[in-house]
């Protein structure tokens, strides 16, 4: 078993909070080639990142693939990771951007090949273990969920990302702007268009059902 020993930190390291300090040590050890330290970083961040990707792309398996790719990119970037931000912030940004790329590809596929997931795959209740779904989510009728997923598909990938980051991840606009590389004003516009688009699509679908 390889033991990873790093007894020095960059200047100012010990002024950081305990969790940040531990993370900085793990990053330093991972950079030195310690696999266990990198694995520890993966375990610490995997749940939150998979949840983020799942909320954005609405497909659990694809979400895991996206997060896996984000961790691989993080591993390749270890030498350049200066520790100015938390690992979770770096991952949040990478996962969000990978999700946007994924949504763009899915959108192109749908346009070119009239490709669409079967309705069963839309159903988050069917995809997730029962204990991972909140009680109020379970109360939503399946048909409404299918409508909602279709309405979300109509949003642009960026609108969808902004909506997820604000409404579901509850991040401040400033942070969303940093993650997506946009101005705060653009984030406001995307958020507004996302909610309006969602509302119009849902109203349209409800009317077509009547």
């Amino acid at each position: 078993m390889n033991l990873c020993v790093v007894d020095t930190l960059e200047s100012g390291g010990y002024a950081l909070p305990m969790e940040t300090r531990e993370e900085a040590i793990l990053v330093e050890q991972a950079r030195a080639g310690c696999e266990q330290s990198f694995e520890a970083l993966v375990r610490q961040n995997s749940e939150r990142m998979i949840q983020l990707a799942w909320r954005m792309v609405n497909h659990r398996q694809d979400a895991e693939e996206i997060v896996q790719e984000a961790f691989l990119r993080f591993h390749r970037s270890l030498d350049r990771f200066r520790g100015d931000s938390l690992v979770s912030t770096w991952l949040y940004r990478t996962v969000s951007r990978l999700c946007i790329d994924y949504l763009r590809r899915e959108r192109i596929k749908r346009r070119l090949f009239f490709f669409s997931r079967p309705d069963d795959e839309f159903d988050p209740l069917a995809q997730a273990p029962a204990n991972t779904i909140r009680q109020d989510d379970q109360a939503i009728a399946r048909q409404e969920l299918v409508h909602l997923m279709r309405a979300l598909e109509r949003l642009s990938p960026r609108q969808r990302a902004v909506l997820t980051l604000r409404h579901q991840e509850e991040l401040p606009l400033k942070e969303i702007a940093e993650i997506l590389g946009l101005s705060e004003g653009s984030v406001k516009v995307h958020l507004h268009r996302a909610v309006q688009g969602l509302r119009n699509s849902l109203a349209e679908m409800e009317n077509s059902d009547d």
Partner: peptide, 22 residues
């Protein structure tokens, strides 16, 4: 109407995922 998927991975699931990444 938007669902908020809440994910709770067990330690075994986290280990499985990190194994895949590694």
């Amino acid at each position: 109407a938007m669902p908020r998927h809440q994910l709770h991975l067990s330690e075994a699931e986290k280990l499985q995922f990190s194994d895949r990444v590694m």
